[in-house]
Computed example of a mutant assay.
Amino acid sequence: MPLARAKVNLWLKVVGRRADGFHLLDSLVAFTDLADEIEVAPASDLSLQIVGPAAASLERNTDNLALKAARLLAGRAGVAPRAALRLTKRIPVAAGLGGGSADAAATLLALVELWRVAMPQEELFDLAATLGADVPMCLAGRPALASGIGERLVPAPALPACAILLVNPGTALPTPAVFGARQGSFSAALPIGSGWQDLGDLARDLARRGNDLTDAAISLQPEVADLLDRLRRSDGVAHVAMSGSGATCFGLYRTIEEAQRAASLLPASWWRHAGRLV
């Protein structure tokens, strides 16, 4: 059963814009142990059941990316779109963690096996890109340097072992709105070296780059600024930033115990997950 792992943008630079309006990015993408799960089974038609702690947020979404991925794969492979999908939803929606894209990628992998689709990997990645810029990186599921609109991926140097605390104040930030609120000039993509020796080395590099969408997200949801400040004041934190277009922010720690202790001091109404990068 493929896991749909939450995606984190450890840095995110907006380096330009294409003629069609899509922004060009430079980002280091990693994945965490927080994951949705997709189960598939043979059926006479195509259906989707959503369960889990974040299921309620998708109640009104009758055609999410998992179903779109299933229909797209069936059409490309020339098979009937017949499968019962069951999505266990744990990743918050519209939170900057790529949950919908991860669900789509996991659905593709599960249905390739169920339907016995013989498709070259390059074609599967091309198909994933038509579902959204984040879907190919979720399909790869490993740390990557992303460029273009997010579809150009190069394997990243190995990340040092560390714990991560993900926190969302309970506010959704749709990606188009955040990009629309961004102001100022575009950034330059910075070269990287051969890798990072330890968490301190990684944290210094991340601090040098940052997330170009943070100010735009704060202008739409000021609570993001309070969240970032609380994380910066937590004991043992090595680096704090917003992931993607928000509103989820993260702190990196050396141990899971430090991440859990920081999580315990946050407002009870805020969603949080203390875990690890994978």
Score class of each variant (00 low, 15 high):
A118S: 14
G148K: 05
L124F: 01
A140L: 15
G148A: 09
V135H: 00
A110E: 04
P155Y: 03
T130S: 11
L139N: 01
A128Q: 00
D126V: 12
F125E: 13
V154W: 01
P120T: 11
L108D: 03
L139R: 00
G132D: 00
L139C: 11
Q121Y: 08
F125Y: 12
A105N: 08
A144R: 08
E122N: 14
A106F: 03
S147Y: 05
D126R: 10
L145V: 14
L124K: 00
L139S: 09
L127K: 00
M137F: 11
L109Q: 14
L108A: 08
V117T: 10
A128V: 00
D134G: 07
G141R: 04
L131G: 06
A129S: 12
F125G: 10
P120W: 06
L111A: 07
E151F: 00
E123V: 13
L145S: 13
A144H: 09
R152C: 13
A110V: 06
R116N: 11
L153F: 04
G148N: 09
L109Y: 03
G141Y: 02
E122D: 15
V135K: 00
L145A: 10
G141W: 01
D134I: 08
L145K: 06
M137G: 11
V112T: 14
I149M: 08
T107F: 01
A128D: 00
E123M: 10
G141S: 09
V117Q: 05
E122S: 14
V135T: 04
W115A: 03
P120S: 12
Q121W: 08
A128M: 02
T130N: 05
L127F: 03
A144Q: 15
L153S: 01
P136I: 12
V112P: 04
D126Y: 06
Q121D: 13
L131W: 01
S147V: 15
A133H: 05
P155M: 11
